[in-house]
Each structure stands twice: as C-alpha cells, then as structure tokens.
Write a protein that binds this DNA or RNA. Structure first.
Lengths: 253, 253
DNA sequence: GGCAAAATCAAACAACTGTTTGAATCGTGC
DNA sequence: GCACGATTCAAACAGTTGTTTGATTTTGCC
C-alpha cells in the first residue's frame, strides 16, 4: 500500500459564502444578471491572474466589470480590502486543509522511507482537490494561488506571511524533522526554492496540460500528478542534505 | 578528470565602459566626488534590488542619489533607457560568455554521462565567475541578475526575452538533445521551473552564505557551488523524463 | 403610490508617476 | 575676465493612481 493513500481523502465542506458566489456565477451562465459586487470580484480575479496586485488598477477592474468606479469602495471599502477578501476566501480553506492533513499524518505516524514525499504531498494535494471543487473556482484555482504566492507586492507578501505564519511554521518544522542534519538557513533556502518553483508552475498555463482533465472526479489523477512531482521535489530537497566535506568530495563526481 | 574541469576557465575581458564605471566607483571609495550620472546608476541598482523596476520611481532614485529629478532624463533620456543601460551592461557579458562556453563545449563534445550537468554548469558558472570580477559590480552581481530574471514588469521581461532570445534558444536546444523523449512543452516547463528557482535563489541573501567568501580568487569555489547545485538541478530535470505509462507505474513508488 | 434605504453615477479630490521647460549655475578654453 | 557649452535647478506639465463627495436613481417595504 502506498504511503500516500491516506492523503487522498475527500475534502471537507466550506463556507456558504463561497457556495453563494458559485451559485451567482452559475446564474450568470444561465441568464444575465450578476450583482455588481460579484462582477467586481470576477473582474478582479481575471485581472489579478493577468497582471498581479500592483498591475491591476481599480479603473481597469471597473471597466472590465462594467461598473462605476466608486462601486469598489462602496462594496468593499478599499482596494486592499477587496483583494484581502478574494485572497483569503481561497487561501484560508487551503491552509486549513493543509494544517489538518499534516496533523492527522503526524498522529498516524510517518512512513519511514518516504517521509519527505509525504509532507510534500500534504503541502499541495489539498490545492489539487480544492481545484477540482467547482465551488472553489474551478481550474483557475491553481493559477490563482500560484499567482498569489508569486506576487511581488508588499501587500500580498505581508498578507500571506502573516496570516498563514502558523501553518508555514508547522511545515517548516515537519521538513526539518524529516531532514535532520540540514542547517536551518539551508532548509529555509531549499523550501523557498521549491515553493517558488511550485508557485510559478501552478500559475502557468502548462500545468493544466499535465493535469489533463481537471473535470475528472477520480482522485487517481491526484496520484498521477503527485507521482510526477513528488520525486522531482523530493530529490531536490534531499540533494541539499550534504555537509561541506561531502560537497568537497563531490568535486569530481 | 571531472567533466566540468574545462568549464572553469578564466573569463574573457569586457568593454572599457564597465571598467570606467568601476574606476569611478573606486574613486568614490577613496575621496568623495562621484559624478551625478554614476550616483544615479548606483542608487538605481540599490533600489532595483529592493523594489524591482515598477516599484522604483525616479523620485526615489534622485532622492537616494542626492540629485535633481531632471538629472535622470538629462543623462539617460528616460527611465526605460536608464534601466536598459544598467541591465544590458551586466547581462550582455553574461550571455555572451554563456553562449561562447556552450559553443566550445559542443565543439569538444559532451561527456556521455553528465551531459545535463555540463549544460547546467555552462548556464550559471559564467555568472559565478563574473560575480567574482570586481569590475562587474562584485557580490551584488548575482542578486542583480536574479532580480532581473524574477522581475514581473513587462518592460524587463520583454527586454530579457527579446535581447537574449538567441542564447536562450541555444540552451533550450542543448537541453532538448540531452533529454530525448521529453516532450517540448514538458521541457519548457521544467526549464522555467529551474530558471525561476535559480533566479530567486541568486536574488536571495542566503546564497552568499553558501558561497562563503566571494573575494576568493580560487576557481575551486565555483566547483563547490556547482557540486552543490548541479546534482540538485540535474535530478530535477531528469525526474521529468518519464512517460505517462511510467508515471502510472510510479503510483505505488 | 409613496418613502426611506440601498445602490449607482459623474465629478472632483489629493497624491503619485515620468517627462519637459526655461532660467540659473558651473566649468573650461580663449 | 569673459563667453559658451555642459550641467543643475525649481517648477510645472499631463498622465495615472486610490478615494471621497453629493446628487441621482433604483429597490424593497408599508
């Protein structure tokens, strides 16, 4: 039995707000009228994917949404509050699920041999299963969170760092325990390394070709992508576990 | 003998403009007066490292440089021309050296077993040896090019893509030949993957701790970092060489 | 139907951006 | 010492940004 088997579990349900949003979006597909507030949200998501936080002006949003400029401040308060709402709406469930799965994995005990791969799986399998949930925004979900983690603006970076500091620390510690002998700053560097890589990969268009049909309901696809990426990332992390003397010995590899 | 030995070669010399700039910078270390034009360049580099292209306003530059606002347009023409000058001044030599080393490597013939690692070495060993050259800007050189390749602005991205398209294509083809059986879009994805990762790593502060003393003249340090990174990146690239059927077989790895 | 609350609107706000102007200053060769 | 080109300067330009205002329209309830 694969050590990842347990990780492929049905996702828990999430707030009614998101369901309401999705319902409103479906209604738009059928008829015509979407509320001003929701049209702003949709236009913002679209433009954020294309241009990021700083590159997306309120006027671009209101033009795309066919809405008066003042509507954003009326419905959301400010640009930062608008983006905070959109970002946390997707990232809160993601990080909750990540933390929950890591806890249950810890409780059950890690696999001896594939500990790193198990943690990697816990880190981004939730993103894959949430991406499959139409109530979470569908196939653009992955691109959205990839963009979010790659966004260079102070505002987004601070939001992610502060709001999810606890979860991030949990995973850092888990990797640290799975990779003893790796200096702390080395671990931090390697984690940034693979996180950046995963973010930009998720944000790209190509990942969907790898995923194939995201519409599929079968969790086997998760295993496919996991089998595709986990050895890749695992090898990267493990390769860092080398003392300076070992590095010297590698000179004529 | 290591297949990388040949790659550690003395860097060729570069234009007198850069030498003049470096001379001016040295003069500043001795006495006090640096020309307005050079103070603008220094302030721009500093702020670009901190905030990127879009995040760096001309007023921030002129304030940091203790210079009148109009001086930028007077000496450089425009903000884009200023950044183009600074970027190409460092990236032109880097890409020229990369292309030259790849050509000579091709002429000599690749090592059978470590072909991927050889190309990886060719891709970023020039950056390391140029970083050691004080005429190229010293230890900040790596952070600078890392920042450049990670910058999200249309202007910088287009500049890098267009100006160095030929070199980029050369390396893509070299990797493609070294990794037969890897579909083109997979190769592109993997290359973006490791390029993003390397860029953000170079741009970070931590890389200097790994590098230890950049002031050292000994090329052995290059080999150290190469031995540190090449297996890491090589493993990542090789892990992608898997057919869909092989992926399926990996489900219970 | 009327009326109060909610929503939309055009317009302006102050702060910022890169760029240009024209006068004042500087430095150098005569 | 003077004149002329190079440089610096304060000021203003036209454009953008996020936000606010006050009037107008729409909506839902009695």
């Amino acid at each position: 039995m694969s050590p990842f088997e347990d990780l492929i579990s049905p996702s828990v349900g999430f707030g009614k707000e998101i369901a309401a949003l999705a319902a409103a979006r479906d209604a738009s597909a059928n008829r015509a009228k979407v509320s001003t507030k929701d049209r702003i949200a949709q236009a913002t998501e679209l433009l954020f994917l294309q241009r990021g936080y700083e590159g997306t002006s309120l006027r671009a949003i209101t033009t795309e949404a066919n809405v008066n400029l003042a509507a954003v401040n009326y419905h959301y308060g400010s640009k930062e509050e608008l983006f905070t709402k959109l970002l946390t709406e997707r990232l809160d469930p993601l990080n909750d699920e990540r933390a929950a799965r890591l806890d249950s994995l810890k409780a059950k005990g890690f696999d001896r041999e594939h500990r790193v791969e198990q943690i990697i799986a816990t880190l981004f399998l939730p993103a894959l299963s949430l991406a499959r949930d139409p109530a979470q925004g569908g196939p653009d979900f992955l691109r959205f969170i990839g963009r979010a983690y790659a966004d260079p603006s102070d505002f987004v970076r601070k939001l992610l760092a502060e709001r999810y500091a606890a979860t991030n620390l949990k995973f850092k510690q888990a990797f640290g325990e799975a990779l003893p002998g790796l200096a702390e700053h080395d671990l931090a560097m390697r984690l940034n390394f693979i996180l950046d890589a995963v973010s930009s990969t998720l944000a790209s268009e190509d990942v969907r070709r790898v995923l194939g049909g995201l519409q599929s309901e079968r969790a086997d696809d998760d295993l496919n992508l996991l089998a595709y990426l986990a050895p890749f990332l695992g090898a990267a992390l493990r390769a860092a576990v080398r003392s300076p003397s070992q590095i010297a010995a590698l000179q004529n590899l």
